[in-house]
């Protein structure tokens, strides 16, 4: 089996003494064609892309991403179209890791085996399912391993250290630390607890990179997270809001924000 594209990306960043900037956008927002264009543009500025397949009832997402999912679904976005966009990104020369993020019912209804197989064949490297805790992940994990797709798990401020060990033992790709109690969305300030969480999590993540997301939208947040020792950050709602405001014309705004945040990952 080839080396995971995700592992490779973190290794190369490490060599350059950089941390990862992972950008999230909702697939199909504002419409499928524009979504491919915007992602192609953003891919040039970031280290990994996290692509959200829209779901009608996204319980882990705040208002910004909820609205993006509603826009995408009203524009006719489907699961099949999500794979087409991934394929389109690869055909257009995008080489950074692509991660699908969605809710379990989407995977289930497409068919677990078929879904993961399509991830592998369209160039999707990792999968993160927001409402699938480790307890229920056995079947999906087995299929992901067979197809060489990294199954990524979240840890939260409420996760005990014992539970972290359990999650890390099953995780692929990287560990995604949720920096706050709550849903996705921009926050003015980083919670102090977030930095303590990073320290605590780093004691358990072993060789897996630790990335931090939820509530991170500014360069100063990125810098603080990087200083605390995390290997990367995920920024979602701040990018999604630019798509909300500028629609298909959002490319230059996305680039500008990405460049600013990326500076924050280069460390002091």
């Amino acid at each position: 089996m080839p080396v995971s594209r995700i592992k490779d990306a973190f290794r190369r960043l490490e060599e350059r003494k950089e941390r990862a900037l992972i950008a999230y956008l909702t697939l199909g927002d504002p419409d499928p064609a524009a979504s491919l264009e915007l992602l192609t543009c953003l891919a040039e500025e970031v280290d990994l892309l996290e692509l959200g397949i829209p779901f009608s009832d996204p319980i882990a997402d705040g208002p910004t991403i909820q609205a993006a999912m509603e826009r995408a679904l009203s524009a006719g976005m489907t699961t099949e179209e999500s794979f087409q966009i991934a394929k389109g990104l690869r055909a257009g020369g995008v080489e950074i890791p692509l991660i699908f993020m969605t809710y379990y019912n989407i995977v289930l209804q497409y068919g677990v085996e078929r879904f993961v197989e399509r991830c592998a064949s369209t160039g999707v490297d990792g999968l993160l399912v927001s409402d699938l805790p480790v307890e229920e992940s056995e079947a999906l994990k087995e299929v992901c391993e067979r197809h060489g797709v990294d199954l990524i798990f979240l840890i939260a401020p409420t996760t005990s250290e014992e539970r972290m060990e359990e999650i890390v033992s099953r995780a692929g790709g990287f560990i995604y630390l949720v920096s706050l109690l709550g849903v996705t969305g921009e926050r003015e300030r980083l919670q102090e607890r977030a930095l303590e969480m990073v320290e605590k999590a780093l004691r358990h993540t072993g060789s897996l990179p630790l990335v931090v997301g939820f509530g991170i939208s500014k360069r100063e947040h990125v810098e603080a997270i990087v200083r605390a020792g995390a290997q990367g950050v995920v920024v979602g709602s701040a990018f999604v809001r630019l798509v909300e405001e500028h629609g298909r014309e959002a490319c230059s705004e996305l680039r500008r924000l990405a460049r600013d945040l990326k500076e924050g990952t280069r460390g002091p």
């Binding site: 319980i59 882990a60 409402d131 805790p133 307890e135 229920e136 840890i155 409420t158 949720v178």
Partner: peptide, 11 residues
């Protein structure tokens, strides 16, 4: 079963 985000699992 239990299909919820990790944040809620401990609760």
């Amino acid at each position: 079963g239990i299909y919820i985000p990790e944040v809620l699992m401990p609760a």
